[in-house]
Simulated assay, not measured.
Amino acid sequence: MDNYVIDINADVGEGVGNEPQLMPYISSCNIACGGHAGDSTTMKEIVKLAKMHKVKIGAHPSFPDKENFGRKKMDISCAALFTSLKHQITDLLNVLYHENATLHHIKPHGALYNLAAKNEKVANVVIEVIKSMHRPVQLYVPYKSVIASLALENDIDITYEAFADRNYNDDLSLVSRLDKNALIDDAKNMIKHVLTMVKQKKVQTVAGNKIPIIAQTICCHSDTPNAITLVKKLHTELEKEAIKIQ
């Protein structure tokens, strides 16, 4: 019998305000640190919650674009992007220091995440920011992405991430949020989607194909409709399937 282990993560501190309800059902969180959302107050509140629930803490830096919630590609120089990302992560590190907590991982947000998955120049900026920190930290990345390859080349530990509430294209990119079938907001469909990725190591795409994928952490977005219900159901069903959540 195979022993399956999975991490459930959620993007938090983005203004939804449902973190107290989410925390009991996730094992790691990605805290918005000022680029697309969040400030020192929200970071502090969520770090306290994460500590209370023994949830691993990650930084969720973004293009510095609150107007578009970090979900649009930004025309920004590599130097300016490096400075912004470093500043965002440092702000969270300062909160963690005062709360006696540890940074476990980094996960880029939105357009930055999607662009770094295929654009070497942008991916290298993220890699250089992590290298400049001089501390052990995981990087949450998509399977078979440019940023995953660069991280391994630079001896940065990676965790392959997949999405519980998003549909995929055949190239393992996420279906655009502009498309009506981008989100998976039905619990039954979401459970089937996740179990296929975890147990079969494949993802059913919108084209109807099953494409190989590795998922070590599964993301549930806190702003997906019925997010709490979906995450709670996912947690319950994974335990029923004898999949360890950690």
Results as ranks from 00 to 15, higher is better:
L230R: 08
P225L: 12
L152P: 00
V137L: 09
H235Y: 15
T229E: 15
R135W: 03
N30M: 11
L81D: 01
S27L: 12
P64K: 05
A242V: 14
L152E: 14
K72A: 06
N209G: 09
I213M: 14
S222M: 01
L92F: 04
A242D: 14
V203C: 11
T205V: 04
K48C: 10
G15L: 08
N100D: 10
E120F: 04
N189K: 14
Y168A: 10
L238H: 03
T224S: 15
L238G: 00
N68I: 06
K233L: 01
P24Q: 07
G35R: 04
T90V: 10
A215E: 06
N9M: 03
N119P: 02
H193N: 10
I130H: 14
N3I: 15
N114I: 08
A242M: 09
V55N: 02
T205W: 14
A182H: 10
F163R: 06
P108W: 06
E14N: 03
P142T: 12
V198W: 02
I211S: 10
Q88V: 08
L22R: 02
H53M: 05
C33H: 09
A37H: 09
N189F: 11
D165S: 11
D170G: 06
K210H: 13
S149D: 13
Y25T: 12
I26M: 12
M52S: 14
V47E: 01
A187I: 06
V126I: 15
P64V: 09
Q246S: 09
D39Q: 03
D185W: 10
P225Y: 08
M1G: 15
I106A: 08
D2L: 12
Q88T: 05
L92I: 13
N18T: 14
